[in-house]
Nucleic acid binder design. Structure first.
Length: 605
DNA sequence: GCCGTTTTCGGCCCGACTGTTTTCAGTCG
C-alpha cells in the first residue's frame, strides 16, 4: 500500500512517476472526502483507485497517450477503476491536474492530513475538531490540548487526550513503515522468545510479514496457550517494549524499539486452539483478500470470520461461533477448499492477484536456488576474497557463483580499471581451476552510464563469463531517457543481466521510472535476464514488475549482491518478492542446472 | 465510486479494544 506522506498534499517531485502521482491524488481525495463526510464506500473506492495506480506496471501517462480515444475504455477494464476514475486519470495525464482534487484541496485545510495521520484519530474525530474548535493542523491540536478546550468535544476525556499526546510524539519521532529485512528477523526472535513461555503451544507471525511485503506496518503474532494470561503478561514485558498500547483478553499491543533507532508496533493475538488456523488466515490478510474470501463464503451460503468457516447461523445478526453452530472448515487448507479454491500461499493473498492465477507446483521456492550471479569481493567494495565467497556459496548449496565487482566509473566503490579487471579475471580463473566443489564465473557489474553506454569496451566485456549491467548514477533522469538508457543495455549483445534495473532504495529514493512494458518486451526478445536484487533495501525489480516481466516472457535472475559474509542470507527476500509475483521457477535462471546456465551464458559469447 | 451466471440499483466483511458511557461510538486491522 502506498504510504501517504502527510504535509505535502500539493506539488509532486519530478522523479515521481505518473502512477505514483495519481496514487497520491486519489489518496488525498479519499482523505478529503472522509473529512467532508462523504459516503464511506466512495472514500474506499478512491483508496482502492490509489492502490491500483501504485501497483500498475503500465505507465499511465504512456497508456493514455497510446490508447487515445479508447483510453477510458481500456482503463475501465482494470479492476477497481470505473468510469469516474478513468476520466480523472485521463484528465490528469492531459492537463496535469484533476479539477475535483483541486477543489477538495481548497475545501480541506492541508494541515488536517497530518492530524488524520495520528494513530487513534479518525475522520469523525478530526472533523469534529475542525468543525467545533477550528483546528486545522497538528499545532492546533496541541494548542487545544494545552488550553483544555479539546475536552469540550464529546467523548473526549483525560485518557484519550493523553493517548493523542503520546501518539503525536510517536509520529513525530518514529519513521515510516519498516522494511522487511528489519522486521522479519525481529519477528523471528520474538517468536523464539515467546515460544519458550510456559503454556504457549503454537506461535507464528501473520500479517503483511507472512505475505512477504517489502515494508511492514506492524508485526502480528498469533498464539495458542494453555495459560493465556501468562503469555500476554510475558509479551507486554518483553525486552525492548517501551509502551503498552492495549491489553485485552485476546489482544495485546506494544510498541518496541528497533535497532536503527525507530520503533514498531507489535500485536499479540491469543486464540483458542481450534480456531488457530482460521485466525491465522484472517490475521494474514490481506484485508482485501479477506473481504474477497468472506464475500465468496456469503455467495455459497456460508460465513467466514476469524473463528472459522460456518454455515449460515439461525440468528444472522449474531456471530455464528456464539450460536453453537458446527464449523464447515477450520484449517486454511479446508477453508480454501470449501470456497472452491486451492490453498493460496500467503504471498499471493493480495488485491491485485487473481485467485487462480498461479501454478502451485511450479511456484519458485528458496530451495530452488542453485547459484548467485551478483557478488562482490575485496577487489572492489566487498569484504571477502574470491575463495571466501566461493566457500559461502558452497555453504548455501550452490553449484555456481559469479564474481561481479564494480566497474571503473564507481570510484567510490573502488571500481576496477580495465587493467585491474584483466588481473582479476586471471585470479578468478586460477581459483576456479583449483576448486572442484563449485564453478566460479569471472564477471563484472558494469555501470550503465547515463546515456546507456557501458563502462568497459566490448573487447574486455567479451573476455568475461558473465556481464551484469546496472545503473548506479543519474537515477533521477526522465522516464524517456531512462527507458532508452536501459534499452541500450538490454539490447547490447554482450550483456546477460540487467542489475537492479531501477536503482531504487525502498523508502529512501524512488530510482528510475522507465516504461517497463517496453523494457520487458526487449528483454524477452534479446534474451537478457532482469535482476531481482534480493537485498531488502532494494528488492529491484519489485513484485509487480517481476509479474509483468515474466508475463512478457523475460527471464529473471534473483541475486544477493553479497558484499559480506552474511550477504547471501538476503536471498529469502528476493524469493518472497518472486513468489508474490507468482514466478515459476523455470523463469529464474538461478534455478537452472550448471549445464543449462553455462549454455545460456555462452550463447552471448 | 465500483460492480453484477439472481442485480444497471442497491448493495458494499466483521469483530476486538478503548474510553467514554450506563449501551455505544470511533478506530483499527
Amino acid at each position: 500500500m502506498t504510504a501517504f506522506h502527510a504535509g505535502a498534499p500539493c506539488g509532486y517531485s519530478a522523479d515521481m512517476s505518473t502512477n505514483r502521482q495519481l496514487a497520491e491524488v486519489f489518496t488525498q481525495m479519499a482523505l478529503a472526502l472522509e473529512l467532508t463526510g462523504a459516503n464511506a464506500f466512495r472514500v474506499n473506492a478512491h483508496n482502492r483507485a490509489a492502490r491500483v495506480c501504485a501497483d500498475l506496471t503500465d505507465d499511465l501517462a504512456q497508456l493514455v497517450e497510446r490508447e487515445g480515444d479508447d483510453a477510458a475504455q481500456v482503463l475501465s477494464a482494470i479492476d477497481g477503476i470505473g468510469k469516474a476514475t478513468a476520466s480523472k486519470i485521463i484528465e490528469f495525464v492531459r492537463t496535469g491536474e484533476v479539477k475535483e482534487h483541486g477543489r477538495l484541496m481548497n475545501e480541506v485545510p492541508a494541515g488536517l492530513f497530518d492530524v488524520l495521520a495520528v494513530p487513534g484519530l479518525g475522520p469523525k474525530t478530526v472533523k469534529l475538531m475542525w468543525d467545533e474548535l477550528g483546528i486545522v493542523d497538528l499545532q492546533g491540536v496541541k494548542n487545544a490540548i494545552e488550553d483544555d478546550s479539546i475536552l469540550t468535544l464529546p467523548r473526549m476525556g483525560a485518557k484519550t487526550v493523553a493517548n493523542i499526546t503520546d501518539a503525536i510524539t510517536f509520529m513525530e519521532t518514529a519513521g515510516d513503515r519498516t522494511r522487511i529485512g528489519i522486521a522479519l528477523p525481529l519477528a523471528e526472535a520474538l517468536v523464539e522468545t515467546m515460544s519458550q513461555v510456559k503454556g504457549v503451544k503454537r506461535i507464528q507471525y501473520a500479517g503483511s510479514l507472512r505475505r512477504g511485503t517489502e515494508t511492514i506496518g506492524d508485526i502480528d503474532l498469533l498464539i495458542t496457550s494453555a495459560d493465556p494470561l501468562r503469555a500476554a503478561e510475558a509479551f507486554r514485558t518483553l525486552p525492548g517494549v517501551n509502551k503498552v498500547l492495549a491489553s485485552g483478553e485476546t489482544k495485546s499491543s506494544v510498541r518496541m524499539s528497533l535497532p536503527d533507532g525507530g520503533a514498531i508496533q507489535v500485536d499479540l493475538r491469543i486464540v483458542e486452539q481450534p480456531a488457530y488456523e482460521a485466525a491465522l488466515m484472517y490475521f494474514t490478510g490481506s484485508k482485501q483478500h479477506n473481504i474477497r474470501m468472506r464475500q465468496r463464503a456469503i455467495d455459497r451460503g456460508l460465513r467466514l470470520n476469524e473463528y472459522g468457516l460456518f454455515p449460515e447461523p439461525p440468528d444472522p445478526d449474531a456471530p455464528p461461533q456464539k450460536q453453537n453452530v458446527t464449523p464447515v472448515a477450520l484449517t486454511e487448507q479446508a477453508i480454501y477448499e470449501a470456497l472452491d479454491l486451492p490453498w493460496i500461499p500467503p504471498e499471493l493473498r493480495e488485491e491485485s492477484v487473481k485467485l487462480d492465477g498461479f501454478d502451485a507446483a511450479a511456484l519458485i521456492d528458496l530451495g530452488d536456488i542453485t547459484s548467485d550471479l551478483h557478488t562482490h569481493t575485496t577487489a572492489s567494495d566487498g569484504s571477502m576474497s574470491i575463495d571466501q565467497l566461493a566457500d559461502l556459496a558452497v555453504a548455501h548449496g550452490y553449484h555456481t557463483v559469479a564474481v561481479t565487482d564494480h566497474s571503473v566509473s564507481q570510484p567510490i566503490a573502488n571500481g576496477l580499471s580495465a587493467d585491474r579487471l584483466r588481473e582479476h579475471i586471471q585470479a578468478i580463473r586460477t581459483a576456479n581451476e583449483r576448486r572442484s566443489d563449485i564453478t566460479i564465473l569471472a564477471g563484472s557489474e558494469v555501470d550503465i552510464l547515463a546515456d546507456g553506454r557501458l563502462d568497459y569496451d566490448d573487447d574486455l566485456l567479451a573476455e568475461l563469463d558473465i556481464v551484469i549491467a546496472s545503473p548506479h548514477s543519474a537515477l533521477r533522469q526522465e522516464p524517456k531517457a531512462a527507458t532508452s538508457r536501459l534499452l541500450r543495455a538490454i539490447t547490447h549483445p554482450l550483456v546477460h543481466i540487467i542489475g537492479h534495473p531501477t536503482g531504487r532504495y525502498i523508502g529512501k529514493r524512488p530510482g528510475l521510472s522507465p516504461d517497463m512494458p517496453t523494457l520487458f518486451a526487449a528483454a524477452a526478445e534479446h534474451d537478457t535476464a532482469l535482476e531481482v536484487n534480493a537485498h531488502w533495501s532494494r528488492l529491484d525489480l519489485r513484485d509487480t514488475h517481476i509479474r509483468a516481466a515474466a508475463a512478457a516472457g523475460s527471464k529473471l535472475s534473483i541475486n544477493t549482491d553479497a558484499h559480506h559474509a552474511d550477504g547471501m542470507d538476503v536471498i529469502r527476500y528476493g524469493i518472497l518478492a518472486a513468489r508474490r509475483a507468482g514466478l515459476d521457477r523455470d523463469a529464474c535462471i538461478n534455478t537452472w542446472s550448471a549445464e543449462a546456465l553455462r549454455t545460456w551464458l555462452t550463447r552471448k559469447r
